[in-house]
Design a protein around this nucleic acid. Sequence first.
DNA 1: CTTTTCAGTGTACGCACGTTCACTCAACAT
DNA 2: ATGTTGAGTGAACGTGCGTACACTGAAAAG
Lengths: 221, 221
Amino acid sequence: MVTTAGPRRPSTLAPVTGAVESRQERKRRTRQSLLDAALRLLADSSLAGLSLREVTREAGIVPTAFYRHFASMDELGVALAEESMRTLRTMLRDARQKPADDAIKGSVATLVAQVRKHEPHFRFLVRERYGGAAEVRRAIAAELRLLGSELATDLGRFPGMATWSSDDLRMAADLMVGAMLSIVMALLDVGDHPDDLAQVIGVAERQLRMIALGMAHWHPR
Amino acid sequence: MVTTAGPRRPSTLAPVTGAVESRQERKRRTRQSLLDAALRLLADSSLAGLSLREVTREAGIVPTAFYRHFASMDELGVALAEESMRTLRTMLRDARQKPADDAIKGSVATLVAQVRKHEPHFRFLVRERYGGAAEVRRAIAAELRLLGSELATDLGRFPGMATWSSDDLRMAADLMVGAMLSIVMALLDVGDHPDDLAQVIGVAERQLRMIALGMAHWHPR
DNA sequence: CTTTTCAGTGTACGCACGTTCACTCAACAT
DNA sequence: ATGTTGAGTGAACGTGCGTACACTGAAAAG
């Protein structure tokens, strides 16, 4: 018994400060607690295997209140996809601004750090990218395409690649995004043993280096 | 009303020939019809969103008979994973024995043909590789690792790569497998418009070519 | 000070699910 | 011939689900 039959104040956990909350602020917080609850539960199963009731139970509200925030679980899935992609994009933006001593080693290191830090988000993205409902997949695919565009633009600024066609830039960017996602998957699968992690990192670095080598010798058309 | 209250002969569709069937042959056929039914239904949803009753309904048997073949849906999922990987491995084996005029163009062409031919199998693999239950994921991952090993061995036979470390061979093979799977995903997502398909094929060929270029200039350690 | 709004509550429903159990009856072993 | 085996049947169960509905009471609007 955690909540002692908490009477009329809505049962969502009280705000950190004891101060009163505006109505929309409270709503936003409850919505977020639904997203957080879902993300927590998604460590164990996929969105398809998650019930509305489970999520509301975990979030600490009654099932019917769910509809005040989302029309369906799929809609919650789309919201989660957007939240997760925001995480991913922020990460890439930060990585881009960093000085690049060894760009590849650095990129992999940031990737590893971010995956560890936002593991549930990445797990969700990887799980639902192809396994999820149509709308969720579409939301993720759209964001991923956007991400490819950004990277392509970036690549075009590199000295040797200024003359590349936008088509080729796009192709190379997609190849790198794909490789990055493969690495993310491997990172999520890796066990607790630190040797495994080092192994995955080493392979990732060499794979990216191989792609970079291919790019360096590419004859753009 | 399709079956007119079919009396005592078990309701699974009669064998093509009217000949009598041995008991184990009939069991094998029913088991296969369960797998086929599941694969058919999996076009619309993931394994997690599929119920035991749905599958038996589609297969034309009663729910409880399911247990004569699998202990759970997850077990059926593992069987499906094995079946699908058999398809994939057969494909790669065939591709390997073909003469290679333009190896990359040829590989992509076979890939496209096979994906079209066995679309449900590939869709299942891609969907469940990360979205599925732990056991299913493990089954797929194990088969994929095996596939990487085979490819690594193959690569080692290429003239320029004889001196590569087995580690590097493995790394390169995994990179190619990953790229191949990305291409499969793209092929499954592609719409009916033939231009889209041509676009995907073009990108795939150039991506593989870029990786090959990287391999050609690799300095093995 | 009233009235309105609306996030969250509680009950109640019908439904599909997984699983149990006792059964039938053709194929197989003896 | 006779007995055993086991794939498929059919009825029944408990459970958790999504959703409808009428509600409450604090915040917002008047």
